[in-house]
Design a binder for these strands. Structure first.
Lengths: 377, 377
DNA sequence: CATTCAGTCTAAATCGTTCCAGATGGGTAC
DNA sequence: GTACCCATCTGGAACGATTTAGACTGAATG
């Protein structure tokens, strides 16, 4: 705080004004004896001034310790941020423990960095207000699987910037990329039914963001706030009912996060029921792998005693013991497509908002098998 | 003069001036008939005006589709960005394929999001210029294992913002967090030597950013640009020479990235030499796992025919077949500490710059064993 | 000799806010 | 009636840059 007016010419901030920079364009201009415009040009348009003068300016800037043109001021004036905001389900750090989210970010950044765009990861946990979204200095947004009623999403809508929605209901006029969750989940469930399983169980994402952990009653199942949850649940149910299984008899264990620990917990809960399921549908591979661990822990064989189906096909799924039967979706590609769509929207603001639905495929591996004859009823 | 000024009062952009916002604070102020300051207060200091007026203002804003105060302008005026820039080795997308980087980001974001800070991931591949760094609207930086001579790093230095350096030489006055790579690597190599291995091989990170892939000659080994590479190499060497092994006889295979494919490639190269090593030191677990695959591919047994030691102790290492002997370092904690240090530096700009050296530990698992008696010389 | 021109450089307007230092005006205290 | 106060609201000066239009050279052109 002491040698600040080594450079500063105006009066020192007296009444605690806004935090001031130590050196500005103005200071350089004054020192060299040229106009601000020329200093600006020295940085941004080297062809607009003689090399001699430019060197003199840049030299003076170095001497004064000038940090270069202030990015905020530049962004304000130019109207461009050169960055893209990303908002993900749950907390920010959670994204780095979820393979699916990581793969998505991998694809997304691959596309965006090719255009020199930075990626702003915005904290958007349900408990925080939307200040971070309002203050995000970005040219556009990517919204990844957020609850429908989330305040961050509505704050983003209000920002009125190009926005790509991933795996959630598309908003009018905004590009969308995702998979068709309902039929994909239905196929997974039908697979179990076809193998003769009649007693099913589900490990689900949260239906609401109220921190509930345990069985989801009819009421909760009625309207999950995230589209992914809603659609997969509906898919499971459709296949079950098509096979004549009463949905009310299918326990749905709701868990807060998508990780193996939660999956384990849910697996224990399901498999220690009086009449335990012989086929379990998990909404993610992380959860499914936890369920397999739980079966293991209880001395049950997978797939001998219980079959397990996941969702996502993360790399680890194929290497697990037993290898996981799961619904494959193009995780990285989703990110790439999201990047492409956003770049397109940034370049042609008024254009049509495309919808890209990516394919899924049920991958049969070792975690599912025919139900025991005795269980088929 | 009709209602066309419902939104914009100035003339439509004629000569392609700066991109203008559709609606500004000014427009709301004019419409409601109050001053700009009052509209600003409606957003930022609700206690400074009557609820009635505030509602009227917010209502008008909604009617006009006002996106809220412009973040760039706000940031300029306030002097705060509410975000932190992160620069990582290699491309941005690469970070999402490297468990160590992911764990780091996990820890970092966990700390930063608790304070409502966003994280700006800045593309800093060696091939790009430092524009993204110069334009980054942030309050501080985190620099993660970058080459010493990197232009992005010098651009960050010039920005003169609080900066935390991770796993690379600390810059004067800046906080640092990392591990002591030299002794850690030395311990890893000594472990092999103690097991009787005399013919060693190394799989290394790049010594320079020139895209070289293959054996690193003496010259290249002399001064790797990244501290991590430098220190680990020196550690391996120290242990080898202490055991009387001539370093010139130890093949160092340099690879571009830290992943299993590169490790596999390097493993093949080492193990198909005329006099193949019986003990291999890899600078990361990703590389080490690739080496194990390579041995497998060649019909060699690990650890029977060749011992392998990794570095990092990523989650997968313990679950591999055979489980990997490796140098454990606190991956997530490094991120957390980096976050803490940066938060501290942001809150107390002038304060002492702390150095935090985290502990490492050699974890003995199944990928290393006694050298065959015939190999011990 | 007048004209054009390219190369440099400058002045002033602007980007969209926030915040400080009052102004206003009605109510309460004495 | 005067003094004081509190709650509201306003004016205008920042914040630190970019950009457009034009001024000033000296040289080249016709």
């Amino acid at each position: 705080m002491n040698h600040r007016d080594r450079v500063r010419h105006r009066a020192p901030a007296e009444t605690g004004g806004p935090p001031t920079r130590t050196v500005t364009l103005d200071d350089i201009a004054r020192l060299v004896g040229v106009s601000r415009a020329t200093v600006s040009n020295a940085y941004n348009r080297p062809d607009q001034l003689s090399t001699a003068l430019r060197d003199r300016i840049l030299g003076a800037a170095r001497d004064l310790g000038y940090p270069g043109p202030d990015p905020a001021a530049r962004s304000l004036r130019r109207g461009v941020a050169a960055s893209v905001g990303v908002v993900l389900t749950e907390t920010l750090s959670y994204a780095f423990s979820d393979s699916a989210a990581i793969a998505f970010l991998h694809g997304l950044t691959r596309r965006l960095e090719a255009h020199g765009l930075s990626v702003l990861l915005i904290p958007a946990s349900p408990r925080r207000d939307a200040a971070a979204v309002r203050d995000a200095i970005v040219d556009g947004f990517v919204v990844y699987s957020m609850p429908d009623d989330d305040q961050h999403v509505s704050a983003i809508r209000r920002r009125n910037l190009p926005t790509v929605f991933v795996d959630q209901p598309r908003q009018s006029g905004s590009p969308f990329v995702g998979v068709d969750n309902l039929p994909a989940a239905r196929e997974a469930a039908r697979h179990l039914v076809d193998l003769g399983h009649r007693r099913l169980g589900v490990v689900s994402f949260p239906c609401r963001s109220d921190g509930h952990r345990g069985l989801a009653d009819e009421d909760r199942q009625a309207s999950p706030t995230r589209a992914v949850t809603r659609d997969r649940l509906a898919g499971y149910r459709a296949a079950a009912e098509a096979a004549g299984i009463a949905w009310i008899d299918v326990p749905v264990e709701e868990r807060l996060r998508s990780d193996a620990a939660e999956g384990f917990d849910a697996g224990i809960a399901l498999l220690t029921r009086p009449d335990p399921p012989t086929g379990i549908l998990a909404m993610s591979d992380h959860l499914a792998l936890g369920v397999i661990d739980a079966a293991d822990h209880l001395g049950l064989d997978v797939p001998g005693d219980v079959s397990v189906v996941g969702f996502d096909d993360i790399p680890r799924a194929a290497r697990w013991d037993p290898p996981l039967t799961t619904v494959q979706q193009p995780l990285t590609e989703r990110g790439e497509v999201a990047g492409d769509l956003l770049l397109e929207a940034l370049q042609h603001p008024g254009s049509e908002a495309p919808t890209r639905v990516l394919p899924t495929a049920l991958v049969l591996r070792g975690s599912t098998a025919l139900a025991r004859t005795s269980d088929r009823r």
